[in-house]
Simulated assay, not measured.
Amino acid sequence: MSKRNNSVLLIVILYLLLMGIFSGTRPEIQEFVFFAMLSALVIASSFLIHRHYLKDKNSLKHRLIYIGICFVKIMIFSVAVKELTGVALDHSILALFFIALSIFTLWELLDFSLWEKGVLVLVLITIIGIRGYESAEPSTAYQLYRSELSNVANHEKILDLLVKDYRNDFTPEDFQCLEPYLDPLQEQRFLRFSQLTFLEFEDGQMVMMEVSREDSDNKLRFNNIELLPEEVGSYFRYYPLEIERKADYPQNIIEEDKEFIIETKGAFISHASLYQKMEWYDKLIEVFGEKKAWDEMQYKLEGLHAPEGPMQGMGISDKGYLHFSFCTEWKVDKEVLNEIYIEFRDYAAKNDIPELPVLFKLAD
């Protein structure tokens, strides 16, 4: 039998093998026809390219170009199969196969020394190792449960796995309730896995989405999607519906600046979303960003402005409070500061700004 006949026979066997493997997935007739046509197209094109382009098998350039063409076709083939039939192929395995094929081609056609061949082997091992390392990282809550929560010894071990802001919410009592369900050999048999996601929006509403994969096509699909009622959403909400404020130094003041702070009055933002902080800042700008407001309050500050008085400046901080700065030589008079605060607080209250936060500091 000639080499050409042998090649045709191998192609037919490969095609039939592909059809057999695919039919084992119990596809519908339409899916089977699509797959058969795509497979025939890929195999036929590969055969023609191999016959008419790869005439010199000892040409490194031709071999690598042929491998590249085959790789592109196979990747397009895998995407088409997934879109048409829902069957997903592992693209990383396909990429790894063609990388290995390219390395072996270099090995065969180039005159490498022993240590250079060792480098090629090391490259292949590194690629395989990186793929194994990446696939080992948990990507779902269930994988994290299986890899990290199994056989945890105590409450502290779980705290190490929690986001810092949520650690105070997980108590030893919570651990005691969960402990029977953390052992993979538990009596309570695991039934199913689904992935819950919560979307928190600017207006405070919470949307819950539950997804899982269907066994038939391994596609991610929704089990449920709904707007959570307030009594449920409040449990999962990270940011409060209203800005939380307290009488304290404003947040994010660096240590070096604290020595310049004379006094703070009012309630500063302690917990709020970025949207809420921006909304609060916009409100301050609306009331105190106009020259009219400062002109109206000017007579209250008579005699305090530099150069006659100690006040060096005033304004609105982008962190959400008013600030007044005084020269370092000024002997602090708490009554003066209190009078300034009362006037601006009352003005703010008339414009729907309660507990106006104000920072008095020395000019640095």
Rank of each mutant, 00 (worst) to 15 (best):
M297A: 15
Q143A: 14
L228H: 00
H323T: 04
K55H: 04
H52E: 11
F32Q: 07
K117H: 05
S317D: 08
V287W: 00
N154Q: 02
I254M: 14
L220G: 01
C177D: 15
P310Y: 06
L241E: 05
A141D: 04
F190S: 11
E137V: 15
I67Q: 02
S45A: 14
L109V: 05
S194Q: 11
L96Q: 05
E200H: 12
L14G: 11
I11K: 01
L220E: 05
E148T: 04
T105F: 03
E329V: 15
P229N: 12
L144H: 14
E355G: 02
T171E: 08
G320K: 02
M37R: 03
Q195F: 00
L14M: 15
M278C: 06
A80N: 03
E187C: 03
G20H: 06
S78A: 14
S150W: 12
I21M: 12
G204E: 03
G68E: 07
Q30W: 12
N6D: 11
V42G: 01
Q176E: 15
E173C: 09
S273D: 06
R167H: 01
D346R: 03
R51D: 07
V87P: 02
V8R: 05
S139L: 14
L41E: 10
L48A: 13
F260T: 06
A247R: 12
I127K: 00
L38D: 01
L60Y: 11
K300N: 13
D282Y: 09
A80Q: 07
D364E: 14
L199V: 13
I125T: 10
C70M: 14
L120C: 07
F260Q: 08
V358D: 00
V42E: 02
H62G: 08
C177E: 14
R345Q: 13
R167D: 00
K277C: 09
A40S: 10
Y249H: 11
I316L: 11
F344V: 00
I13N: 04
F34L: 04
K331W: 02
F236W: 14
L60H: 09
K117A: 06
Y133C: 08
A95F: 09
I128L: 13
V33W: 11
L89S: 06
E290F: 05
W294Q: 03
A100N: 10
E244I: 12
N224R: 11
G24D: 03
L185G: 15
Y239Q: 04
L10G: 10
T126N: 05
Q298Y: 13
Q276W: 00
S59M: 10
K3D: 07
Y321G: 02
D174M: 09
K73T: 04
F175Q: 02
Q188S: 12
S273A: 09
T105D: 07
L18Q: 06
I316S: 01
S113H: 06
F77G: 01
